[in-house]
């Protein structure tokens, strides 16, 4: 079972289940993993080589407001086209992302929720592999591999009702994260003020209203100057609300 999910606005929020966590990790490996290299397990096709990166990606997948904030930042920086402001808007206002909003607590390495239970499910069915590098004394570095079977499962998942939302949403996460290493992602997330201010062990607070404000400002400014920065190649981009 997932750790400390808690109540937030609007009454009791049910805890995310181990199964949901497993689904998220699966789609993250597929969408955000890098292609395996020689020396990696034979059956593996994609890999995420640090838990920090995995946790950071999961954080964006679970917190649509922070994801929207990243989109605004990218548009602001001219990396993304202005149409991503609409996407950000959907993330903030549509009910769909909110249904999947499960806040995460912050630990020393940033947002963190133990991935073991969820990963064991993927492992049992041969969808993913966990390999640890390093010794017992020195902290081991975990590498998370997606297997061929796992990749096929993600394809199946995209056909599932409701669960297919994750295969879509994770594309935005991948787009936002790019190829940044876990530490870089963590840094970016630290830049998101609320995240940084959150005390250890406490759920990271939502920043929806602040993002909405930034977004409106940016929209107004862009309308004013009518400038189109040109979007990066985002073939897989869809609005978060549609799945």
């Amino acid at each position: 079972m997932t750790a400390d999910s808690t109540t937030t606005h609007g009454g009791a929020r049910p805890q995310a289940t181990r199964m949901q966590h497993a689904i998220r990790v699966l789609v993250i490996l597929d969408a955000c993993g890098e292609v395996v290299k020689a020396g990696d397990p034979a059956d593996a096709v994609k890999v995420i080589r640090s838990e920090l990166r995995l946790q950071a990606l999961d954080f964006w997948l679970r917190n649509p407001d922070y994801l929207a904030d990243e989109l605004v930042t990218k548009v602001e920086a001219g990396e993304f086209s202005e149409s991503y402001l609409d996407t950000a808007n959907h993330l903030l206002d549509d009910p769909e992302p909110d249904l999947r909003w499960y806040p995460m607590p912050r630990w020393h390495y940033g947002a963190y929720e133990a991935v073991d239970d969820a990963f064991s499910i993927l492992d049992a069915y041969g969808l993913a592999l966990l390999r640890r590098k390093g010794g017992v004394v020195k902290a081991a570095r975990s590498q998370f591999f997606l297997t061929t079977k796992g990749k096929a499962a993600v394809a199946d998942l995209a056909e599932e009702p409701r669960l297919s939302w994750y295969t879509e949403q994770v594309k935005l996460v991948a787009l936002v994260a790019g190829t940044d290493l876990g530490s870089a992602l963590k840094k970016r997330q630290y830049k998101q003020a609320e995240y940084a201010k959150t005390e250890l062990g406490v759920n990271i607070a939502p920043i929806a209203s602040g993002v909405r404000e930034r977004l409106e400002k940016l929209r107004a400014a862009n309308d004013h100057y009518s400038k189109d920065q040109g979007a990066p190649d985002a073939a897989n981009h869809t609005d978060g609300s549609e799945s």
Binding site: R13, Q20, I23, L99, L157, P161, R162, L163
Partner: peptide
């Protein structure tokens, strides 16, 4: 709605696995 989503997602995931 949240509860139902979680439940059904969980069931769907469970069924999936």
């Amino acid at each position: 709605q949240l509860r139902r989503n979680a439940t059904i997602e969980d069931a769907l995931a469970r069924r999936f696995f």
